[in-house]
């Protein structure tokens, strides 16, 4: 059942399985989960879960923010790293962006002299601050040898502290009208999907992606192949930080407020989405398309439990079980040869 194409005695084609969508098994999990809620919906709530455009829109909108973060986390985990600081970085970068998006009508703006700025200023400020904090993560990991778990744990605490320090704990609101556009309607979804496509391309077709997979697969091999491991790690964490900054801009625009407590536990949702989407915590394997489906699975579960009127603590218990199941599946796959 393999394709017959071969040249010079060497087969270069994959078996028929190659041509199936790579994430078909995860897609089936998504459809199965939605189907379970659909059936339960008719029995318990007496209405459809899936065929409700309003609900679907809310699921997608809610998950766009986690989705943008999860894209950054996907490439880090492919590189055999981890990032626990995304939620805290989102909180701080959101404060920075929001403080530059305030209107002059509000007399107690964070920077009274910097009100009514063009919309690009807060957007770039948020993303830039994300780059900086992501770069600090990457620099610590690459140059000091601190394990990613510890370095980003430090950033988790430090960035949350920065977010509180920035306005002494007060929230930031009263934005210029344009700023609200980024979080309105379908725009967050468009931003999420555009970012996903861009990073899918980067990981699949560029040197950036090749080196990310190579380092995650065998760092020693990548080093002797002449790849500048440290520089690449800094770059990957920096770009991830930029994505957290982008997510922060979208989040503050959607909620029309920035507060130091924002993004709490987003890092775990993002990691969960990545792992559910088939990216291996061991590194070297994973895809953005899988992460998109992973994000949708999380969204369906959260929304489904709300729909059925089941308490959020049950949602967290189920999420926890799914994450552990995903990791166990990953280990099983690793022990029995996986494929990227």
């Amino acid at each position: 059942m393999t394709s017959t194409s071969s040249t010079g005695g060497y087969k270069t084609e994959k078996s028929w399985k190659y041509w199936l969508p790579k994430d078909i098994s995860i897609l089936m999990v998504l459809l199965g989960t939605a189907l379970i809620f659909e059936i339960l919906g008719w029995f318990i709530a007496g209405q459809s879960f899936i065929f409700n455009t309003q609900r679907l829109t809310i699921i997608i909108l809610q998950m766009s923010i986690i989705g943008i973060i999860a894209i950054g986390v996907t490439q880090i985990i492919i590189m055999a790293g981890i990032d626990l600081s995304s939620g805290s970085i989102l909180a701080f970068t959101g404060m920075v962006a929001a403080s530059l998006a305030q209107t002059s009508d509000f007399t107690r703006a964070v920077y009274p002299a910097l009100t009514d700025m063009p919309i690009l200023v807060p957007i770039f400020a948020g993303i830039l601050m994300g780059f900086v904090l992501g770069g600090v993560n990457g620099g610590l990991i690459a140059y000091s040898g601190i394990p990613p778990f510890i370095a980003t744990l430090g950033m988790l605490v430090a960035a949350r502290g920065l977010a509180r320090w920035y306005t002494s704990g007060s929230q930031v609101s009263f934005f210029i009208d344009d700023y609200a556009i980024l979080g309105s309607g379908i725009i967050p979804v468009i931003i999420f999907l555009t970012t996903a496509m861009a990073f899918h391309f980067l990981l699949r077709y560029t040197r950036y992606g090749r080196y990310t997979y190579a380092i995650g697969s065998n760092e020693q091999a990548a080093r002797v192949a002449g790849i500048n491991i440290r520089a690449h790690k800094v770059l990957v964490y920096t770009l991830a930080g930029g994505l957290y900054g982008l997510a922060a801009v979208v989040e503050t625009s959607r909620t029309l407020t920035a507060q130091s407590g924002a993004g709490m536990l987003y890092e775990l949702d993002a990691i969960a989405a990545v792992v559910i989407g088939g990216t291996s915590l061991m590194g070297g394997k994973g895809r953005i398309t899988g992460t998109i489906i992973g994000v949708c699975i999380l969204g369906v579960i959260t929304s489904g439990f709300t729909f059925l009127g089941i308490g959020s603590f049950y949602t967290n218990i189920v999420k926890g079980i799914i994450i552990v199941a995903a990791v166990v599946t990953d280990q099983y796959r690793n022990n029995n040869n996986g494929n990227r």
Binding site: T206, R207, Y208, R210, Y211, Y213, A214, G216, S217, N218, Q220, A221, A222, V224, A225, G226, I227, H232, L235, G284, K285, G338, R340
Partner: peptide, 25 residues
């Protein structure tokens, strides 16, 4: 010194890839 998760050409050319378009990393 091979990367198990990459295919043969990716391993052969690791660190000196053939490029369609040059733009740093």
């Amino acid at each position: 010194a091979l990367c198990n998760d990459l295919d043969v050409p990716s391993n052969l050319f690791l660190g000196r890839e053939e490029l369609l378009f040059k733009f740093g990393p």
